[in-house]
Nucleic acid binder design. Structure first.
Lengths: 191, 191
DNA sequence: AGCATGTGAGACGAAATTGTCTCAAACAAT
DNA sequence: ATTGTTTGAGACAATTTCGTCTCACATGCT
């Protein structure tokens, strides 16, 4: 069974999303290669996880640019910020869904190198949210870091919803955006 | 070092919140007892985790009653539902904070017996949210299960915020309630 | 003092996982 | 066809964790 490094990583991610604690042997089987071959591509389990996390972080970083988040933060333009916010959240859903296991894996979250990178990326988003607050796009009475953590939490909610089959995949983006921006109370309500 | 079963569990929970993958040896050390004694109280690691989860579920279930959630669901009374919603969310913060590691521990989430109990408790909340929707307290255009998952996600956000020190403990309840009900957009805004 | 109970330290084997290695078979390229 | 590369199967030692067990010691009670 031949497999490129890329195919291995994709299959590994897919399996880790179902069994976050899978062993190297289980991952090799899921990929369809032998344990020896898996070790030829990734010298250790840490190596593999590092590579997967690095890939996820790359996609995340690319999204921050492609969504216009970076540019909008710099421009402080309200319309640009609004477009970027929507694109960012929609993109985050995809990344978070693909690398879902990473959302709640403690070993990844506490890995020094990975934590540094994640903190750095998250910090950019905090700055972006702060800019959105100044533009009147997001409430100014909420800490920007809380907003950032809220988005993270809602991504976890999306993952849960999809895993349980509670909502259809095509609906999650709308639900996330809507809930994040307007909350769960009716518009006229003041609770 | 003498310790009651209760003290052991409390100390174990505390340590697991910092090191979710802690071994029995590490837990024993954190509790301040020997590994042998820990095994005298809990025959296996599974046994300990089961006991901890059971305790968490009990508190959760108690909260569903003490918050008035159960009664309000049955009564369909709008004011009662509103009071219950507030009390439930505030109580969930405490439970989720105390047993934070359980929010994202895959081994607990997939344990058949625990999953059954958690699903059962969550189902009650879904019914409650549905009642709140009928009473006009929550938006009717959101799936009740999505609302339930949203609350779960926001609890994860709370845990993250407290771990990182992003927000003060006394503020989290207000932030959670406020964000959950009204979202992150300014009231006049329509994004 | 004498006795019973609980505890800590540590040894022990069992099991799982990891990373390395060897060797034979399959494969690709020339 | 031959050569060089890659792969799979499996053996291997090292490590970790777990659950059990023994034994000495302390603590409390009568």
């Amino acid at each position: 069974m031949a497999a490129t490094r890329d195919q291995i990583m994709k299959a590994a991610i897919q399996h880790l999303n179902e069994s976050p604690a899978a062993s190297m042997a289980q991952l090799a089987e899921a990929v369809g290669i032998s344990r020896a071959t898996l070790h030829r591509h990734f010298s250790s389990r840490d190596d593999l996880m590092l590579a997967l996390a690095h890939r996820a972080h790359d996609q995340w970083e690319d999204l921050q640019t492609s969504s216009g988040m970076v540019a909008a933060t710099a421009s402080q333009d309200r319309a640009a910020l609004e477009r970027a916010l929507k694109a960012l959240l929609e993109g985050l859903i995809e990344v978070a869904d693909e690398y879902g296991f990473g959302l709640t894996d403690d070993r990844l979250a506490t890995h020094p190198e990975l934590k540094r990178r994640a903190d750095e990326l998250e910090e950019r988003e905090v700055v972006f949210y702060a800019a959105a607050q100044r533009a009147g796009l997001l409430r100014a009475d909420l800490p920007a870091r809380w907003i950032s953590n809220t988005v993270f939490g809602l991504l976890v909610a999306v993952r849960e919803s999809l895993r349980n089959g509670d909502v259809a995949r095509r609906d999650v983006a709308r639900l996330l955006l809507d809930t994040f921006l307007h909350g769960a109370a009716p518009e006229k309500e003041r609770a």
